[in-house]
Design a protein around this nucleic acid. Structure first.
Lengths: 250, 250
DNA sequence: TTTGTCATAGTGTGATCACAAAATGCGAGT
DNA sequence: ACTCGCATTTTGTGATCACACTATGACAAA
């Protein structure tokens, strides 16, 4: 959890804001694990500040649901239950297509070119077995669209959704990479946006989000999943008989 | 802005959390005016605490978009532009029906009775020219529904939407009271929920929110509305002729 | 009347401290 | 191995302080 010191242009931005952004980035990039406790003093030490900026930044993150707070007051990286993940995905499937529809007709040719490059970057990362690069490219693509919507409240809400699920989603990056077919509909979204067809773009994204949620629900473990009692039973007993040259299986 | 000291059961809750809740309540109940600056020291003095709890509470509120922050760092109660109000209303029209649909089938008979009483309370407040009572009853009704949805993330997002528009909405309470017909569809929503028809309940609420937004857009002033140059021209000149016993009009 | 300058007051921020509560580790007993 | 008690460490919270920056008001000049 060693995070680097800010850059020189940061001198005009408060330490608190810098800490806030640094922590948001850390949440999105899997630097924190779900369930990890973030103590004010330890975060401050890692950031190289006094506890104050870290303290406020952590509280701010809790307010936007990026972090949870234990009864002791300690901030903790969320571990999502199945139910919470379903809820979060349903909200995403509702709001992100809305943002895409709002972006339709607001994207210029330069932005289209940049978006195309992001798609190519994501595809290259997939082909190169680079799950981190894939997640980043996909995220950059979508957030470029949401920025284009010019709807600051909506953008802020979407950000908080992504922050809350950031750590566990990062943990699932190999699962996502291993999905075949990919389920990625960014090209379809972009094509519809080029045609100024916000309705189709929104529908394509909604379908993508919902299918991806279903896929992850079928592949991941969640915070309240019961220990699988059959898991151990599925370990078949070792065969104690002498090997007779025939494979015994198991 | 004198706000009262907490109650005895508050001793187990941090001052910061108490300050946070107190300020949220103040935003919803029109205690702050749009555009009002909230200085840490003045809020702390009013709450009777040191600046620390007030400071963190204000920062938290800014994080959830309930307050804005000036470049100086001072927190300010939002004044919404027309565009921002439209955006906020569109998000509400999308998310609140979603919560109502989720609540369908989760409301027991005791809750229905309480919801009915809230509707009656709102109607009585309207009939008694009590705009504050009306707003409270309507709010209580809707938030009871959203709580019944048992979707904590969605509930938190809806809360932040309501907080952001709280002050200016409060300022519009007489405009809302004066609306005739009221446009209030809570009875229809409740009826659909009784019939376990979440789709209809959601549609009724969506229609209500959208119509209410249109109504307010047509009646209220917003932060970036241009000064109406025709307003002064519409003041007709006084008549300088001697009064001749006939009303001159104007 | 308007504009510019300057002094003062107000403000947010980061640092630090003290204290109470919570967490942790260790040893003893069952 | 597990549980309990105790001492120690860690932790969050509120209070306070100092400093740099911002906002405001008063006064003089045009």
């Amino acid at each position: 959890m060693r995070v680097t010191q800010g850059t020189s242009e940061a001198s005009a931005v408060s330490l608190e804001d810098q800490a806030f952004e640094r922590l948001r980035h850390a949440l999105m990039e899997g630097i924190f694990a779900p369930g990890q406790k973030l103590s004010i003093r330890r975060v401050a030490a890692a950031l190289g500040t006094s506890p104050m900026p870290a303290r406020t930044a952590l509280r701010r993150l809790a307010t936007e649901q990026a972090l949870d707070v234990l009864s002791s007051g300690t901030a903790i990286v969320p571990r999502l239950t199945r139910r919470a993940f379903r809820e979060l995905s349903a909200i995403r499937a509702t709001l992100e297509p809305m943002a895409v529809a709002m972006a339709a007709g607001r994207i210029d040719e330069g932005q289209f070119a940049a978006l195309e490059r992001m798609i190519l970057g994501g595809e290259a990362a997939r082909a190169g077995n680079d799950p981190e690069g894939m997640l980043r490219a996909d995220r950059d693509f979508l957030f470029a669209l949401y920025r284009a919507a010019a709807a600051p409240m909506l953008y802020g809400i979407i950000e908080s959704l992504w922050l809350r699920r950031g750590p566990m989603f990062w943990d699932a990056r190999w699962i996502i990479l291993g999905r075949n077919p990919t389920g990625n509909q960014h090209r379809e979204v972009l094509q519809a946006l080029r045609a100024r067809d916000g309705v189709t773009a929104a529908a394509e994204l909604k379908a993508e989000i919902e299918a991806a949620a279903d896929y992850l629900l079928s592949r991941m473990r969640f915070a309240d999943d019961p220990d699988d009692p059959e898991g151990i039973v599925r370990l078949r007993p070792l065969s104690l008989r002498k090997l007779s040259g025939k494979p015994t299986g198991g």
